[in-house]
Lab assay of single mutants.
Amino acid sequence: MGTYKLILNGKTLKGETTTEAVDAATAEKVFKQYANDNGVDGEWTYDDATKTFTVTE
């Protein structure tokens, strides 16, 4: 398990959240659902060194 971070750079929603997941693929699924639930759809990037996903609208 590891802690993964999501940085939201949406047009109307900005912020950060974290999740505990077994791997990056699992964290990505959780974060994409979170972003979708909050109406954020954009370009995704992932930094393996910091376990950080970023979505920018």
Rank of each mutant, 00 (worst) to 15 (best):
A49S: 11
D48H: 10
G2F: 15
L13R: 08
G10D: 03
T12H: 15
E28M: 15
N38H: 14
I7W: 04
Y34E: 02
A49V: 12
Y46E: 00
K5G: 03
V55S: 02
Q33N: 08
G15W: 14
D41T: 13
A25L: 10
G39V: 04
A21W: 02
V55F: 05
M1H: 10
E43Y: 12
L8P: 01
A27R: 00
T54R: 06
N9T: 08
A49M: 13
L8I: 14
T19S: 05
F53V: 01
T54C: 06
T18G: 04
N36K: 15
T18L: 09
D47W: 04
K29H: 11
V30K: 08
K29T: 09
F31I: 01
A24P: 09
A35E: 01
D47E: 07
D23K: 03
G15E: 08
Y46D: 00
T54G: 03
Y4D: 00
K51T: 04
M1W: 14
W44P: 01
Q33R: 13
Y46M: 02
A27D: 00
G10K: 04
G2C: 13
M1T: 11
F53A: 00
G42S: 02
T18K: 07
K29N: 07
G2D: 14
V22K: 10
L8E: 01
M1K: 11
D48W: 10
V22H: 11
L13V: 15
T18W: 15
Y46V: 01
T52P: 00
N9E: 08
Q33G: 07
T45M: 12
Y46P: 00
T12Y: 13
V40N: 03
K29E: 09
E16D: 05
E57D: 08
D41R: 14
V22P: 15
A27E: 00
T17C: 11
Q33W: 06
K51H: 12
K29R: 14
D23E: 04
E57F: 09
Y46S: 01
L13G: 08
T3D: 05
K51S: 06
D37C: 09
T12Q: 11
V55P: 00
T50Y: 06
D41P: 04
D48F: 10
Y34D: 01
A27P: 01
E43K: 12
G15D: 08
E43M: 14
G2W: 15
T19I: 14
T56G: 04
W44D: 00
E43L: 13
F53I: 01
T56H: 08
A25Q: 12
D37K: 10
G2P: 10
A35W: 03
V40I: 14
A35V: 09
T19M: 15
E28C: 14
F31S: 00
T17P: 03
T45G: 06
A35L: 09
L8K: 01
D48P: 14
Y4G: 01
E28H: 13
T12L: 13
T19C: 10
I7P: 00
G10S: 09
G15L: 15
D37E: 12
I7D: 03
F53C: 01
T3I: 15
K14L: 07
T3Q: 10
N9G: 04
D23L: 04
F53Y: 05
T3V: 13
D41F: 14
D48L: 10
L13Y: 15
T54H: 06
T3K: 12
E57Y: 11
N36C: 11
E43F: 12
G42T: 02
D23H: 04
L8Y: 09
E57I: 09
M1S: 09
Y34G: 01
A49R: 09
K11Y: 11
G42V: 02
T52G: 02
A49K: 12
T52Y: 03
K11Q: 11
T52F: 02
V30D: 05
A35P: 01
D47L: 04
A49G: 07
V40S: 03
Y46A: 01
N9M: 12
K32F: 06
T12I: 11
V22A: 13
G2H: 15
G39W: 06
D48S: 13
G10V: 11
W44M: 04
A35S: 05
E57S: 08
N9P: 03
E20I: 14
T12A: 10
T17A: 12
D48G: 10
D48M: 10
T45N: 07
V55E: 01
T12V: 12
E28N: 05
N36W: 15
V40P: 02
F31M: 03
T19R: 05
G42Y: 03
D48R: 07
A49D: 10
E28R: 10
L6H: 01
T26R: 06
T54N: 05
K14R: 13
D47T: 05
F31E: 00
T50N: 08
V30M: 09
A21F: 04
A27I: 01
E20A: 09
F53R: 00
D23S: 07
K32Y: 06
A21E: 04
F31H: 01
